[in-house]
Amino acid sequence: MDERAEQILGRRVEETRRDLGISKVDFCVATGISRPYLDRIEGGTANFTLKVLFKIAPALGMTVSELLEGIE
């Protein structure tokens, strides 16, 4: 994934998490992702793996396809 895609995806994760009213701590507990890694994800600087996407998407009530929609 290129840098721009990572930034778009990071913003999408953060905005959706906030819209759902899920705190960073609760999201980390639900997904098993560390807080520093979530900060990098939402900041658009993390490299994503499929494993991480399959943890994040359901926690946001989405499928991986929905989470990645429109990102090239």
Rank of each mutant, 00 (worst) to 15 (best):
K51H: 10
E69A: 00
G43L: 07
L60Q: 03
K55L: 06
T16F: 12
G32Y: 08
A5D: 15
F27Q: 03
F48Q: 01
E15I: 04
G70N: 06
V64E: 14
I71A: 02
S34F: 08
V25C: 10
E69I: 00
D39Q: 04
K51W: 14
S34W: 13
G10K: 02
V13K: 00
S23Y: 03
G70W: 13
V64A: 12
G21M: 02
G32W: 04
A30H: 03
A5Y: 00
R40P: 06
G61W: 09
D19A: 07
Y37F: 15
V25E: 15
R4P: 03
V29R: 11
A57G: 08
R40C: 10
G70V: 03
E6Q: 08
E66G: 07
L67N: 04
A5I: 01
D39S: 08
L60P: 11
L50S: 04
K51M: 13
M1V: 08
Q7V: 05
F27H: 01
T63A: 09
A59D: 09
D39V: 06
S65V: 14
R35S: 12
E6I: 04
M1H: 14
R40H: 12
G43T: 03
N47H: 01
S34C: 11
A59H: 00
E6N: 13
T16A: 06
C28Y: 05
K51G: 06
G44M: 02
Q7L: 03
V29S: 13
T16S: 01
G61Q: 11
T63V: 04
R17L: 15
T63K: 00
K24F: 09
E14P: 07
G32Q: 13
R40M: 12
Y37A: 08
E42N: 02
I33T: 13
T49Y: 00
P36T: 08
R40S: 14
Q7G: 03
L53P: 11
R17A: 12
L53A: 03
E66M: 10
V13S: 08
C28T: 13
